[in-house]
């Protein structure tokens, strides 16, 4: 719980995207929630943001099983994340 508090929103989004990438760019919703190590309500909030920003796409199979796919924009986020953190550190943002 404390680890969750210490991570920023951008770090959590990055972590979620990395988990999906390590899983061949696709993953079921529930294992993803488990692996991110954040509460389900918080995860739902971040997941909604990921969908809105088109970092991931979701496909619903059999009306209940959700599969999450890493989108091209999500890959770009992962790619640029370290540069982003460097900018924040360099300019105290």
């Amino acid at each position: 719980m404390s680890a969750e508090r210490n991570r920023s929103k951008h770090q959590i989004i990055y972590d979620i995207l990395i988990i999906i990438r390590k899983n061949n760019n696709r993953m079921r919703y529930t294992p993803l929630l488990r692996q991110t190590n954040i509460s389900s309500s918080n995860f739902a909030r971040y997941y909604k943001e990921l969908l809105e920003k088109e970092f991931v796409t979701e496909v619903v199979e059999d009306k209940t099983k959700k599969t999450v796919y890493l989108a091209e924009k999500g890959l770009r986020y992962i790619d640029k994340y370290k540069t982003f953190m460097e900018i924040l550190r360099e300019f105290d943002l």
Binding site: H10, K53, R76, K80, T83, F84, I87, L88
Partner: peptide, 9 residues
């Protein structure tokens, strides 16, 4: 620009 568009920080 690109980093801002991705992160919205």
């Amino acid at each position: 620009k690109e980093i801002y568009e991705l992160t919205g920080h």
